[in-house]
Design a protein around this nucleic acid. Structure first.
Length: 174
DNA sequence: TATTCCTGTCCTG
DNA sequence: CAGGACAGGAATA
């Protein structure tokens, strides 16, 4: 019983195989709070622990229907997000992520565009940092953000996945 | 072309 | 607590 400290929340986690490789889906009581990609489960788990230092991670084998919806989104990234999202970040990050979610599927924006959209036109570099800190791959379309010169620049989970997602949305990349 | 500054976070010493 | 590193970009020399 002392296992349930009221201060420690439990996050349910599950590994799934997606069309982009292994993904780690994490869910709180409020919704999906993390979607990490990568083929090394240990690295993903450590990444998740680093993001939620104060939470207890409960890894599960059983398939949660919520994670099915997440997988479907990876296959069809332009589809609307149909599952609840539990987003946590600094006020600045949340502004950036909100702006990202307004980029329509199949379209792209630049880091400078996002900076202008949130009212911090000179903070383009900080915007890039917020994109990299984005815990919800695909659901928050940081892959639609390109450099001003049109190049892909970088991606937290690998430029190849960024290119794959954009190709899936019908965007031609250099 | 090469510096320099701007900006928010995170990591390291 | 200070300094450096980032998925950028505009301004200056």
């Amino acid at each position: 019983m002392r296992a349930k400290d009221p201060d420690v929340e439990t996050i349910r986690c599950v590994f799934r195989n997606s069309s982009l490789g292994t993904v780690l889906i994490a869910m709180s009581d409020s919704g999906v709070c993390a979607l990490l990609m990568g083929d090394d489960e240990e690295i993903l788990a450590n990444d998740l622990r680093r993001r939620f230092r104060n939470a207890k991670l409960s890894f599960q084998k059983s398939v949660d229907p919520l994670s099915d919806a997440v997988l479907a989104l990876i296959d069809a990234p332009t589809a609307p997000v149909t599952f609840p999202i539990d987003l946590r970040g600094t006020p600045f990050q949340e502004r950036v992520w909100a702006a990202l979610r307004e980029i329509p599927g199949g379209q792209t924006a630049t880091y400078a565009d996002i900076a202008r959209a949130i009212g911090a036109p000179t903070a383009t570099r900080a915007v890039a940092g917020a994109c990299g800190a984005n815990p919800l791959a695909v659901a928050i379309p940081c892959h639609r953000v390109l450099r001003s010169d049109g190049t892909l620049s970088g991606y937290r989970w690998g430029v190849d996945k960024k290119r794959a997602l954009l190709a899936r949305e019908g965007v031609d990349t250099p």
